[in-house]
Amino acid sequence: MKYYSYVIPRDYGFAPNPYFGYCTLATCKPRIRKSAQKGDWIAAYGASNTKLCKKLIMLMRVGEILTFDEYWDDIRFTNKRPVFNRGMFCAYGDNIYHHIDGNWMQEPSHHSMVDGSINNANLETDTKVDRVLVATEYYYFGNNAIEIPREFNALIGSGRNHRVHTDINIIDELINFVSENYVMGIHGIPYSRVNGAFAHYRGEK
């Protein structure tokens, strides 16, 4: 078992996407999506330029790994396809990639252009790794991100690159801390949704 930690500078409920009973990581973080295996834990922390710096935004245990086409075709995840007339949690659906006649299709979404056309920068980054991480065991805190005890500081993500931890004892202690104090599921809303307007991410670094 491994524990991957990273910083999330923008949180719209898109990556990760905690809705409809599954927490999914289907876009961004290609290196984590490439390496993580079933049973591994992934944690996202607030970035240094946010009021949630070093606080735990999301914690998920990988339970399933799908290709983009498998994710698109699976009826369980139809609700994660972006829809723009059912509220923000539907508009930020992350089920956006699949093949048509052998070519990648990117659905109108947070990662497309404003007019719904393909954003090639995001498509290239996201599809670099054809893997979607799926969890039913997860905690999503969003704007109610929590502080974790100091003894777990080594597990907090920082900087642009993710960290990988393999010390099972400290990983288990952190998981126990969270599970003893919170029930699994959603505990907040995405902290980047400040004005209710839908946002597109152009792929800026």
Rank of each mutant, 00 (worst) to 15 (best):
K54L: 10
K54C: 12
K55G: 07
K55L: 09
L59V: 03
L59N: 01
R61E: 09
I65H: 02
I65D: 02
L66Y: 02
L66E: 03
L66H: 01
T67N: 08
F68M: 07
D69V: 04
D69E: 05
D69F: 03
E70R: 03
E70I: 04
E70M: 07
W72D: 03
D74M: 01
D74Q: 02
T78K: 12
T78P: 02
T78G: 07
T78V: 08
K80S: 00
P82L: 03
F84M: 04
N85C: 11
N85Q: 12
R86E: 13
C90T: 13
C90N: 11
A91L: 09
A91K: 09
Y92M: 06
G93F: 00
G93Y: 00
G93N: 01
D94C: 08
N95H: 01
Y97T: 02
H98P: 00
I100Y: 15
I100F: 13
G102T: 07
G102H: 07
W104I: 02
Q106F: 04
E107K: 11
P108V: 13
M113F: 12
V114M: 14
V114F: 15
V114W: 13
D115N: 15
G116N: 06
G116R: 04
G116C: 06
S117V: 12
I118T: 07
N119D: 08
A121C: 06
L123E: 08
L123V: 10
E124M: 15
T125D: 14
D126I: 06
K128W: 06
V129G: 03
R131E: 03
V132N: 02
A135W: 00
A135I: 01
T136K: 14
Y139F: 14
F141Q: 07
F141K: 10
I146K: 04
I148T: 05
I148L: 04
P149M: 05
R150E: 14
F152I: 12
L155N: 00
I156N: 00
S158C: 09
G159H: 10
R160T: 11
N161V: 15
H162S: 05
V164C: 09
V164A: 08
V164D: 05
D167C: 05
D167K: 08
I168Y: 13
I168Q: 15
N169G: 06
N169E: 12
I170Q: 14
I171P: 03
D172Q: 11
I175G: 11
F177V: 04
F177T: 02
V178T: 03
S179A: 10
E180G: 15
N181Y: 12
Y182E: 06
Y182K: 10
